[in-house]
Amino acid sequence: MSTPAEFPVTWAPRRTRAVLLPVCALLVVMFAVIAVALPANWQFNDRVLMVLSGVLFAAAGLMLARPRISADAEGVTVVNFVRSRRLAWAEIVGVNFRQGDPWASLDLADGTSLAVVGIQSGVGKAQAIADARALRDLVHRHGH
Rank of each mutant, 00 (worst) to 15 (best):
S105T: 13
L26E: 07
R17F: 06
S105D: 12
E74V: 10
A65K: 10
L27S: 02
F7A: 04
V28A: 04
A73I: 03
V36H: 04
P8Y: 08
N45I: 15
A37E: 07
G94F: 09
P102F: 06
E74H: 14
V29G: 00
A104H: 08
D101Q: 11
R98N: 10
V36T: 02
A65S: 10
S53L: 15
I69W: 03
V29W: 06
G100D: 03
N45M: 14
S105G: 03
V76K: 05
T77V: 15
A88P: 02
D101I: 01
N96Q: 14
A12S: 15
R86M: 10
F81L: 15
S70M: 13
Q43V: 09
A65F: 06
N96Y: 09
W42Q: 12
P102M: 08
P102N: 11
A90T: 07
R98E: 14
V51I: 15
L56T: 12
C24M: 14
T10Q: 10
I92R: 04
L106V: 01
L64H: 10
W11I: 05
G61D: 04
V36K: 03
V28D: 02
I69L: 11
V29R: 00
V55R: 00
L21Y: 15
C24S: 12
F97I: 00
V29H: 00
V79I: 13
S84Q: 15
A65D: 05
N45R: 11
V29K: 00
A88T: 11
W42S: 13
S105A: 11
V23F: 12
F31Q: 01
A58E: 02
N45G: 15
W42F: 15
L52Q: 07
V76T: 05
A60L: 15
A37D: 12
M50R: 09
N96G: 10
N80M: 06
R15V: 07
L21A: 12
S70V: 11
A40D: 15
L87F: 09
W11P: 05
M50W: 07
L20F: 12
V76N: 05
R66E: 02
V82S: 13
R68A: 13
A109C: 01
V9I: 13
P102R: 07
P67C: 09
V51W: 03
F44P: 07
L108E: 04
R15C: 01
P8V: 03
R98V: 08
R17P: 02
E91M: 04
A104K: 06
P67W: 09
R83C: 04
N41S: 13
P67F: 10
T77D: 09
